[in-house]
Design a protein around this nucleic acid. Structure first.
Length: 592
RNA sequence: GGGGGUGUAGUUCAGUUGGUUAGAACGCCUGCCUGUCACGCAGGAGGCCGCGAGUUCGAGUCUCGUCACUCCCGCCA
């Protein structure tokens, strides 16, 4: 028999009545009746109530044990009377009458409550993460994460994917996010970099003939945090396949994701495969973003044409300045008080817009300052094109295209929540496809890669020869769920001549590729198979499944927003001799 | 790098137009209590009101600065 327990804290039941058992765990709660004392013992699996009364010689000692101490209890399993059964816990029909006990490790007074939610500040929770992890919500999240990862492993393995590790000490890449650097002791002045993703390695695995690769891959990016973006590190279900088309990648991964969401969510409506496919350009038009939340029924329409020569001076002037006019129709809003519209207007101004104009449609007529200034025939065209019905409002955003798209996507979300239109209890997946290969950089006035320089352009060399670079579409795609980007992927470019042409467009010479991406350049001269893949973000998937809005709630030991570990105190200062060995010197700056 | 929010007891919060000794709940300590499971009852301890200036007869409250945390923008091919 195990030294510490015969059962865990969730498994003792009526069938054990009369048995002598031993359990160990944390003292979750005490209820002291003076002559009678109840102790709830908690472990990873559940809670068991133990009871002791003054007949026991060590009653006073038990009474004085502090919450969250670890103890083991030996005693007999006793049936509870009907009126004292606790239906909330699995062991609620029985309790343990304590014969003997041992405090295995006592606890000081805890800095925040564990047996009940107490909204402790996050920095305190992070400092005492080992206590925070005992709380049922976080504990469940971390176990969920474990189960999700394990399910992904099984599903990928059963589909013939090989799990292969790639290096953590890798080399800095010139494009993309800032790297974390690791100084080399053996090579003065040289650095490793932690991989932003195993991108190059997985492509080289394809060149190495492995056909189907996956990995639960840590990725490191030295960029600022968001609620859904951990600073420092995060995990992806990284996978890559040879001899596949985009649609075959979709067919492979859709059921994997669907099944995981179905297995690990309760009572949720989940988009079944095949997922909706939306072109990037279409998404930008309708949603103003390439990560639309499809639970939000509102859509964005363009009204630039309608406002030409319309009589509404402000928008006419904007159109002359090459701006656009976007509209969002919102149902059930015409009866909102004036203050509601004023607040929305203020909200828009706070976000740097000139305002948020609107037409109210009620009693079969359009009202409000914009409607009053519009020529009649233009107004009826707008009403017709927006299909306005009584009760609707049509909100307008006017700005330069990029800005208008971005803000209208915010407005679409804001208005949806204002009217409470968001579909509840569902996971809505879609693919965003056909990303442009290049984009025009307004600052440098040059053409840049818009997404991933290693994606295959649709149409291959023909497209490069026959189209304006900004019209070239890449075999590049994202998976989006409820407005969160879960994954991006691509059919990779495995042809060196095409790659050289693409890099030329972006202003690089062949030698630049050779120098910066030497391994790929080399490998693609020796028989690279056509290949492609993607990398769904594990943290975000678990976050959605756990219904958390912050990534830190699904990571066991997260960094805070400033990328510090408040428990270990990292990043920390390094001893002089350690630095010396690495031949590093810290430059003191007066401004620091 | 920039913008917003928050900062009062161990924790969550209240604190009036600036005005006596800064309150409550939970937690902690002490006592009472033999069927609780948010146990109950009584009492007690616990405060650099984030920090620093300033205005004022007087600042938790007003002003400026600063720090911490958080959300967002930039950034994240």
């Amino acid at each position: 028999m195990n030294q510490y327990r015969s059962h865990n804290c969730s498994e003792i039941s009526k069938k054990d009545i009369g048995k002598e058992v031993k359990i160990s765990g944390w003292l979750n709660k005490k209820r002291d009746h003076g002559g009678l004392l109840f102790l709830d013992l908690r472990d990873n699996y559940g809670i068991t109530q133990c009871v002791v009364d003054t007949e026991h010689d060590d009653f006073d000692k038990v009474e004085s044990i502090r919450l969250e101490s670890v103890l083991s209890v030996t005693g007999s399993v006793v049936e509870r009377s009907d009126e004292t059964i606790n239906r909330n816990i699995s062991t609620g029909e029985v309790e343990i009458k304590i014969k003997s006990f041992e405090v295995l490790n006592s606890s000081e007074v805890i800095p925040f409550q564990i047996s009940q939610e107490d909204d402790a500040p996050e920095d305190l929770r992070l400092k005492y993460r080992f206590l925070d992890l005992r709380k049922s919500r976080l504990h469940k999240n971390i176990l969920l994460r474990s189960n999700v990862i394990s399910a992904f492993r099984k599903k990928m393995t059963s589909r013939g994917f090989a799990e292969i590790q790639t290096p953590i000490l890798s080399s800095s890449s010139p494009e993309g996010a800032r790297d974390f650097l690791v100084p080399s002791r053996l090579h003065k002045g040289r650095f490793y970099a932690l991989p932003q993703a195993p991108q190059i390695f997985k492509q080289l695995l394809m060149v190495g003939g492995f056909d189907k690769y996956f990995q639960i891959a840590p990725c490191f990016r030295d960029e600022d945090a968001r609620a859904d973006r951990s600073p420092g590190e995060f995990y992806q279900l990284d996978f890559e396949m040879s001899f596949v088309s985009q649609s075959e990648i979709f067919e492979m991964i859709e059921p994997v994701i669907f099944e995981v969401f179905r297995e690990f969510s309760i009572n949720k409506k989940i988009s079944p495969p095949p997922f909706e496919v939306i072109k990037f350009s279409e998404a930008m038009d309708i949603f103003g973003t390439d990560k639309p939340d499809l639970r939000n029924p509102l859509i964005i329409q363009d009204f630039s044409k309608e406002f030409l020569d319309s009589g509404f001076k402000i928008f006419e002037d904007n159109l002359k300045k090459n701006m656009v006019i976007k509209g969002i129709k919102v149902p059930n809003s015409s009866k909102k008080p004036r203050t509601w519209f004023d607040k929305l207007n203020k909200w828009a101004r706070d976000l740097g817009q000139k305002g948020l104009g609107y037409i109210i449609f009620d009693d079969d007529e359009a009202k409000g300052p914009i409607a009053n200034n519009l020529k009649k025939e233009k107004l009826s065209i707008i009403i017709g094109n927006a299909a306005l019905k009584n009760g609707d409002c049509l909100f307008f955003i006017s700005n330069e295209r990029r800005n208008a798209e971005k803000f209208s996507s915010f407005a679409r979300e804001k208005l949806c929540d204002e009217i409470n239109l968001r579909e509840k209890g569902s996971f809505r997946f879609c693919w965003i496809v056909d990303y442009p290969m290049f984009e025009f950089n307004n600052e440098t006035k040059k053409i840049d890669f818009s997404h991933n320089p290693f994606s295959m352009p649709q149409g291959g060399m023909e497209a490069i020869k026959n189209y304006n670079p900004l019209e070239i579409i890449a075999w590049q795609f994202d998976i989006v769920c409820n407005g969160i980007e879960l994954s991006s992927g691509a059919i990779r470019n495995h042809k060196l001549d095409i790659m050289i042409e693409l890099f030329k467009i972006a202003g690089y010479e062949e030698n630049d590729i050779k120098r910066q991406f030497g391994a790929i350049y080399n490998a693609f001269k020796f028989g690279a198979p056509p290949h492609g893949g993607a990398a769904p973000g594990i943290d975000r998937i678990v976050m959605l499944l756990a219904e958390e809005i912050n990534l830190r709630e699904v990571v066991a030991f997260p960094l805070n927003q400033q990328a510090e570990d408040l428990m270990l105190g990292s990043p920390n200062l390094i001893a002089k001799n350690h630095l010396k060995e690495l031949r590093l010197k810290i430059e003191e700056n007066k401004n620091d």
